[in-house]
Nucleic acid binder design. Structure first.
Lengths: 331, 331
DNA sequence: TTGTACGCGTTATCAT
DNA sequence: ATGATAACGCGTACAA
């Protein structure tokens, strides 16, 4: 069923049908009724593709995600959807599985008229990313990292991590092991680590005396790392850059017959949904990922409407969640 | 940049550029080189919308999800993405937040030429759903529920739940409380409950003596329900239709000063990622949701290629995960 | 082997 | 107030 068919059935021209559908221009009440009737009768759905071509607007935004099956990503996407819906937009999501080449391919593919704008959840931004993005003309918003020249939605990783380490220090800990990830991930691998070392240094605690373990984002990896750490010496606290890593560490510690937090305190970052239901409930930092998605989408739509790419930073609040995985060792 | 511009720059006709881009028809090697050069130089991206309109194929599939920020949904979507990528397809995801009207709207919107097929993750299928879907001409695959006339990907909820309850019975439990959800959700609310009552009946255990609590999917709700149950009488085991509900129950039980599994055994269904890291590790059933997504997508593409809507059932395997949240009470 | 011209379904302009 | 018609960017008969 196309607009022509509807026109024929209603005894009018395609133009009139279009006017009725979009509430534009004048249409005599009588004809309008006739058209509306036909539309309802045949459940006419206009061809969105044709509309897009004509209007030079697809009413779709592209979302590039490293891994959709991740609590973080899906919560951000959830936020984006909310705003998109208000604007009558659909999401096209591209799941890259952390593959840089895929990201580049999708940037190119989505751009230029398939979508009206792109939200990119970034972990690593290479020079190639920058190069490609600078060639694209549609609005782009980055989530999770700062890129000069683009609106970026940021989770205050530095302040959050520092607050966490300072909290540990305040509780009397000076022997704080670090469980982190590869520095390819800027926010998690680099910034959270820097916050950790800065916090120690500012407190006058030797960084070189601490134990470090760097791995991937998997619980099992943290489990193994923690095990190795424990064969060397026993810290009084562990700062894991991720809740999942903290959980891995906790299990290793328990399996070594040690108690948390009595023997070793453990903290994470991120506040996954189940963090507070663990035993002990995990002390961590809560990020409002859905809010990130909302803010990113709002910025993108502003961008789409005004047509100017802003170099804007949007900081998303975090919240310290003090629970029971830390104990004070002040005498 | 459009095809015309490229043609001009390469000194050929638009048709030739098209032939080069799609590797169709004959093009003299020399001209091909020239065109390819220009394409690379200006990083030409063909307008996908125009292609879709011309080809009557959008190379996109629609995915209707009740809630993307859910472990289940995001794992299914992950599977779909994998297959879609192999076919050169993109996903348009529609997050309905469990709103039936939204689902209907999206079914209509996505259909007829915006997408080449739809995968719908269903919780509740109303007569309106059926009505609308029967009017659509594009292939549709349902995930999570059976709908007559459509390819359906199913998680063997009945067998899985029954296996779980039988396991409890084998361990000597006859006093098994039930924590479920509203019957609007067919698979979780209805089938899992039926499996529970059937298992009891078949074992000759009175169903009417059991305690029931029906709520939503939230951990907190289960926490409260469990608390109320406990004020009445103390079962020896709890069958929760969801891991989250099981977790809520576990917390309530602990907060009442009871131990798991020593005082009360608790089981869930679903095996969320963190289930095995709880204390005690939760006995549950593992569903391969990513596999569901993969199978659904494969079925959809077959559907798209052959053009016939199959009335096919695809059962996804489950796996019993025996962990430590259950204890035997056989003397 | 290549180019011209039409059509995909819609909207917007311009007459009427 | 309404209808004919030209675009939107691409692919493909058909002609050359």
């Amino acid at each position: 069923m196309k607009i022509k068919d509807i026109a024929k059935l209603a005894g009018v021209s395609p133009a009139t049908v279009s006017r009725v559908m979009n509430n534009k221009g004048y249409v005599k009440a009588e004809k309008r009724k006739a058209v509306e009737r036909v539309i309802r009768d045949v459940n006419y759905q206009p061809n969105e593709i044709a509309k897009s071509l004509k209007n030079q607007k697809s009413k779709m935004i592209g979302v590039i995600v490293p891994k959709i099956s991740t609590e973080t990503a899906s919560r951000v996407v959830d936020g984006i959807t909310t705003v998109a819906k208000e604007h009558g937009y659909q999401l096209i999501i591209a799941n890259t599985n952390l593959d840089v080449e895929e990201e580049i391919r999708y940037l190119n593919f989505l751009s230029n008229k398939l979508v009206d704008g792109i939200i990119m959840m970034a972990t690593e931004i290479t020079p190639i990313h920058e190069e490609v993005m600078s060639q694209l003309t549609i609005p782009i918003v980055i989530v999770g990292q700062k890129l000069e020249g683009y609106t970026s939605v940021l989770h205050d990783d530095y302040r959050a991590s520092k607050a966490m380490v300072n909290y540990l220090i305040d509780k009397g800990h000076t022997d704080i092991a670090f469980i982190g990830v590869d520095p390819k991930d800027e926010a998690v691998g680099v910034i959270r680590k820097k916050a950790y070392t800065d916090a120690l240094e500012e407190a006058g605690i030797s960084v070189s005396n601490q134990q470090f373990a760097i791995g991937d984002f998997e619980i099992e990896t943290a489990y193994k790392s923690m095990g190795e750490l424990l064969t060397r010496s026993q810290p009084t606290a562990v700062f894991a850059v991720t809740d999942h890593l903290a959980i891995g560490a906790i299990h290793s510690i328990s399996d070594h017959g040690l108690r948390i937090p009595d023997d070793i305190s453990v903290v994470g970052i991120g506040d996954v949904k189940l963090a507070k239901y663990f035993s002990p409930p995990l002390t961590t930092v809560h990020y409002m990922f859905k809010t990130s998605g909302i803010k990113a989408a709002e910025a993108l739509f502003e961008n789409i409407q005004t047509g100017v790419r802003k170099n804007q930073d949007i900081m998303i609040d975090f919240q310290f969640e003090e629970r029971s995985s830390v104990c004070s060792i002040i005498k």
